[in-house]
Design a protein around this nucleic acid. Sequence first.
DNA 1: CTGTATCCTTCGAGATACTG
DNA 2: CAGTATCTCGAAGGATACAG
Lengths: 129, 129
Amino acid sequence: MTVRPVEVICLEDQQHEKCKLLGQILDRIGDKWTIMAVGALSGGPMRFNELMRRIGGVSHRMLTLTLRGLERDGMVRRTAYPTIPPKVEYELTPLGRSLTEPLAILLQWGEKHSGEIETARNVFDQSRN
Amino acid sequence: MTVRPVEVICLEDQQHEKCKLLGQILDRIGDKWTIMAVGALSGGPMRFNELMRRIGGVSHRMLTLTLRGLERDGMVRRTAYPTIPPKVEYELTPLGRSLTEPLAILLQWGEKHSGEIETARNVFDQSRN
DNA sequence: CTGTATCCTTCGAGATACTG
DNA sequence: CAGTATCTCGAAGGATACAG
């Protein structure tokens, strides 16, 4: 049994456990297609194929898996109408909508600092031939 | 911190430009080790091996790659002391520290809603035997 | 239209060993 | 101590075909 230090500093003087939780959150919602799906649905309910067209570049299979994951986590509600051909609508739940707030803040950060990052990259890449 | 309407995440008539930017941000900073490294460094400068011990479970190679990426993006400053054996210190730049703010907000969201997500998962898994 | 199953390729990441 | 280079394996994700 190894002894682990507990006093690991994390975000804003919190402990290491916080980082792990953050990692879990990002595991859930941090991937490309999940973000795109949440973004697309933030405007209102949408059908499967419409989502696929809106997002663009996503495979049939990955969109299905992404939506299943969001549904499982309670972020998206799936409503199937037993018509022929079938019609399925997806929409954000209140939980899903609540996610858009921290994401919007992260987006603001990105918009504010993307230039800085771009510059830093160029400098870094220059300094390596 | 002002909370803007959810539509800020993704404006449909902009072809998901916002989503794409958000996707790029998450590509950069959304992976497990990057978060852990930023978290660990948020407490102050740290040497390579100390970082590795603090983070725990990260391979030598991945920590190196993670730190290179952060350095390239201007989030981390690397300072090498030409001693024998070598000593290298890593620390967050102002840009890197600024990232901890939106991350802390995302973390708060996670803390607030993790129970809800857990419940949703159990319900979903139950409904599929 | 929507969902699932299968195949197949690619890529990420750990292990390891070696260098300065 | 810190960094780099290979090797390898397994998982992620696209393409495709088929079903309801």
